[in-house]
């Protein structure tokens, strides 16, 4: 896998702050952000920060994990519906596989996602954990 500093910097909004897009025509909010609305086709959208809490709609427990992520195995990947109805796909962390269920309340947290090497680039991003309060 290759990663460039420019790319990590360019993609920071969605990955660090859970930034999505809001369509200026139909008003729909979605994630990941895009320069056009996938629902009404409008080319006019604006950035919005999304709520950090939601619940799990579906998930998988990944046992065969790609190179570079094996220290995380088994890796749990979930589709989460945020409080405003927007969906986000992200890994879960600080939770055991047998504790996860559909409907589980979760909240976003910033974590290390991928490391190039001991001295290389580090990609950070949003992961979700069970809601604490």
């Amino acid at each position: 896998m290759r990663m460039s500093p420019a790319r990590v910097w360019r993609e920071r909004g969605a990955r660090y702050r859970l930034e999505g897009s809001k369509c200026k025509r139909c008003g729909r909010v979605f994630y990941p952000p895009k320069p056009a609305c996938p629902y009404c086709g409008s080319l006019e959208v604006e950035k919005v920060e999304l709520p950090k809490r939601g619940k799990i709609i579906s998930y998988t427990i990944e046992y065969t994990v790609p190179e570079g992520y094996r220290h995380l195995a088994p890796l749990i990947i979930a589709l989460i519906e945020l409080e405003n109805g927007v969906k986000v796909l992200a890994p879960l962390t600080d939770v055991k596989p047998d504790e996860v269920y559909i409907g589980m309340p979760v909240e976003a947290t910033l974590r290390r996602v991928w490391e190039e090497s001991d001295e290389g680039l580090i990609v950070y991003g949003i992961k979700f954990t069970p809601t604490t309060s």
């Binding site: 579906s58 998930y59 065969t64 790609p66 991003g125």
Partner: peptide
Amino acid sequence: ADFEHEAIYGASFVALNALVMRLYMH
């Protein structure tokens, strides 16, 4: 699959399909 928002998190292609399968079964 989407690299920027899926594969970067370690989600394999099988994992993405698995998430859909669980939703279907549910």
